[in-house]
């Protein structure tokens, strides 16, 4: 393969993993924007989505129904998680929230280990289309489907947040919760909706990820979850375009590092980027430098 083609392949790899990170990072950033909470259990929703879709596929349902039911189940899980674990702690300190989030993450991982064992399970690549041939390189459908689905969802999400009343309400709550209440916005509903959307996107990420990288296991969500969190911080946590930008940058850095530097040190390099970023520009690339609210 020519050097240029190899570079092109890495570019495509980067876009693919970047779009998965973006779907996950959106959930982190939206929840943080509204509830001022890092939901560390968010990555595990990917795993939940992967297992639910695997079980549903076994029942012989059509692929689109499997996707739909998985998305709904994960959205419900996200809302329940907020109501049961986070809502009672809304006035608690950040550290209690963080500990709770880590607790939920372990709970989900262990629960699924109990049900499905820790052994990896093969995941059928059930969403396939013919590959695209560009000269001497062939792009398998896994790659372009992930990219197209993610970008479409991001465009829809952006339209929703920018144009609809509910989207304006979400932005209002994220900026000033008290003032939002004075507008007659139901903050609880807005927070639930945010968790539902974030978890739905994570479910889709779970399906797309498993579709590309079979097999699946109960801790599969934690690494992409952490990477997506890094992407969200990189872009500026709370910012939607920031999360997308951060995710694609991270995806690219990963693909290029793997190909040209070292796949062994991949994760250390990624974490180094996070630390450097936090030192150089704590608010992230597109983050606003907000003072803590009093």
């Amino acid at each position: 393969m020519s050097a240029f083609n190899q570079f092109l392949m890495q570019l495509i790899n980067g876009l693919n993993i970047g779009s998965i990170y973006a779907l996950i990072a959106l959930g982190y950033t939206m929840v943080y924007g509204i509830a001022k909470l890092i939901n560390f259990a968010h990555g595990d929703i990917i795993m939940v989505g992967a297992y639910i879709s695997l079980v549903l596929l076994g029942t012989g349902l059509p692929w689109w129904l499997v996707c739909l039911l998985t998305i709904i189940a994960c959205a419900v899980l996200g809302v329940v998680m907020e109501k049961v674990a986070y809502k009672p702690l809304r006035k608690a300190s950040r550290i209690s929230l963080l500990i709770t989030a880590i607790g939920i993450s372990y709970l989900l991982e262990n629960l699924f280990q109990l049900i499905f064992t820790a052994n990896p399970k093969p995941y059928p690549g059930f969403i396939t289309l013919p590959p695209i041939v560009l000269g001497s390189i062939t792009i398998s459908s896994n790659y372009y489907i992930t990219f197209i689905v993610s970008v479409t969802l991001m465009i829809i999400l952006n339209l929703f947040v920018q144009k609809t009343n509910m989207g304006k309400a979400m932005r209002a709550v994220s900026e000033d919760e008290g003032a939002a209440r004075l507008m007659g916005i139901n903050v609880d509903t807005t927070i639930s909706l945010t968790f539902a959307i974030g978890s739905a996107l994570a479910a889709i990420a779970g399906i797309l990820y498993s579709n590309c990288y079979s097999p699946i296991n109960p801790t599969m969500g934690s690494l992409p979850g952490i990477k997506a969190f890094i992407a969200a911080v990189l872009g500026g946590i709370g910012s939607i375009p920031g999360a997308v930008l951060g995710a694609f940058i991270l995806g690219m850095v990963e693909a290029m590092t793997k190909a040209y530097i070292s796949s062994q040190f991949l994760d250390s390099i990624v974490f180094t980027i996070l630390i450097l970023m936090l030192i150089l520009k704590p608010a992230g690339i597109l983050g606003r430098n907000v003072k803590e609210k009093v």
Partner: peptide, 8 residues
């Protein structure tokens, strides 16, 4: 202090 939504 008005509390308009500055970013909208």
């Amino acid at each position: 202090r008005r509390r308009v939504f500055a970013e909208q």
